[in-house]
Amino acid sequence: MRPDPATVLGAVAGAVAAQVPTTSTPFGQQTLGIAAGLSMMLAQDIDRAPARLVEEHRATAAILRDAIPQLGDAELAARIEDALAHDILADLHISALQAADDSVRALLVEVHAAVEAMPGDTAAALNERIWEELKESTRRRHLVTGI
């Protein structure tokens, strides 16, 4: 058993920050301060990132699936179907999870633009649902930065 990455990065951040007062140049102090802050942010995200990406992929996929009947765009619908056929759990590397999440979020951009242009209560409701998911996406990524 080894110390988990978040704990290690937190300790690295503390060790780097402790050197700031002993560093003689303003640029050196700034660089060390940034390195410490960056380590803290990575520590916050490293454990949750896979869960965040899978949760977001599923939430976005659900919106896209429900949007298909409203779109009236066979080509876009086909691309959504292709994306939804991909099993995000097939590759658990963070880079692969990120790519899968990016693919559905790119489609969400297109669907959002299409829905904004549609009249009617159903489209309006879908628009609100997309905004709620976008708000939720910032909550998932939120980091305590001190800025």
Partner: peptide, 20 residues
């Protein structure tokens, strides 16, 4: 420059929060 990594990690999501 580590500043660029730092602004990426600290400010891209923050910018989205502000836009909302």
């Amino acid at each position: 420059e580590v500043m660029l990594a730092q602004t990426s990690w600290s400010l891209i999501n923050r910018a989205d929060e502000i836009l909302l």
